[in-house]
Design a binder for these strands. Sequence first.
DNA 1: ACCAATAGTTTCTTACAGGAAACTACTTTC
DNA 2: GAAAGTAGTTTCCTGTAAGAAACTATTGGT
Lengths: 122, 122
Amino acid sequence: MKKKAVVNNTQVCQIRMQAISDTMSILSGKWKFHILGTLIEGNRLGFMDLLREVKGIGTKMLSKELQDLEMNHLVSRTVMKTKPITVEYAITEYGATLSPLINELAKWGIEYRQSILKAQDN
Amino acid sequence: MKKKAVVNNTQVCQIRMQAISDTMSILSGKWKFHILGTLIEGNRLGFMDLLREVKGIGTKMLSKELQDLEMNHLVSRTVMKTKPITVEYAITEYGATLSPLINELAKWGIEYRQSILKAQDN
DNA sequence: ACCAATAGTTTCTTACAGGAAACTACTTTC
DNA sequence: GAAAGTAGTTTCCTGTAAGAAACTATTGGT
């Protein structure tokens, strides 16, 4: 009798797994959370502002990541008719729905650090 | 007057960013969430069980990812004195603290799918 | 003796992510 | 007219993630 998968073959499980993959794929890469976090914090930033805020990122990556985020409607891009032209990036209403998730990530990471410190005290 | 970063230079912000990086680094890779989700669902699984449950993964990746998770105390590995030897992997108490985060990821992904379907109805 | 199942490790190869630096293009300021 | 600021793009290079396949090693079943 061959064994089969028994845990992960319920439909609810499949859908959840797929959903997690979707989310992670949209937020993949080294910089997405930094950019989103920065835009949630200080709304309406120019390209050069973001380049300064998101420490370590280069123009290529910033440009590419912003395009990804814009494509997924998490960030809006507005060209202003100033001279020289400036571009304003902002978090969208939809992008703001990521806040609880980002908070969970931050919360877990902070607690993780604390648990390591505690473990070292022994 | 040179512009400086103004949004992300508060200490709270720095700590949160670092925490998010920590979390993402611990959960990095294509398979971590699948493995953790599977172990949360069905506790105590053998290596071959996981190989069957986590669809698409190979032995090398499963082995490596389990080592990572064990190193970070999210998963426990117990060698049973059966013959032939079997190994039981289980989520730790600490690993279970990831549940809220995993739920948020799944929730957001499911809502994302629904928002795309709605947008197509227009 | 041979196959199947346990739990991995090792090797080889490929694809992609990401970084550095140079470049485009326009405008304002000195 | 040169420098500096706006917002990117392009090219070239490298390290790592990941997959496929073969291999080790032990034991049980027929």
